[in-house]
């Protein structure tokens, strides 16, 4: 119902939320596009091995294949938790 007190209702600014969510998901989608099929599984296995020794969150590891000139480089980066947090 559109009515007399409409202007009192707070405006829903959901379009902004939509845009932010899309920017995140599309950046991720694009980084995965053209990536080899084995990347997600390999990423999971590396994560499992690391977790035997250090407790790291799911998103602590990033695996991507990049092109540097004529070489394909497998870029693996793992973010370890703060020393205090992990040993304390």
């Amino acid at each position: 119902m559109v009515g007399i007190f409409d202007f009192l209702k707070p405006k829903q600014q959901s379009a902004n939320t939509a845009k932010n969510r899309l920017q995140v998901i599309i950046a991720e989608q694009r980084s995965e596009a053209g990536a080899p099929d084995y990347l997600p599984r390999m990423r999971q296995e590396i994560l499992d091995v690391i977790r035997k020794y250090v407790h790291v969150p799911e998103d602590a590891i990033k695996v991507s294949k990049e092109k540097h000139g004529e070489y394909d480089v497998l870029d693996i980066s793992i973010e370890l938790p703060d020393r205090d947090a992990s040993e304390g």
């Binding site: 405006k11 829903q12 600014q13 959901s14 379009a15 902004n16 939509a18 845009k19 920017q23």
Partner: peptide, 17 residues
Amino acid sequence: RVEKGEMLSVTDVEEVL
């Protein structure tokens, strides 16, 4: 609806894609 902030604008979609 775009002006009410309920729908992605042309610019939003252009920027995202």
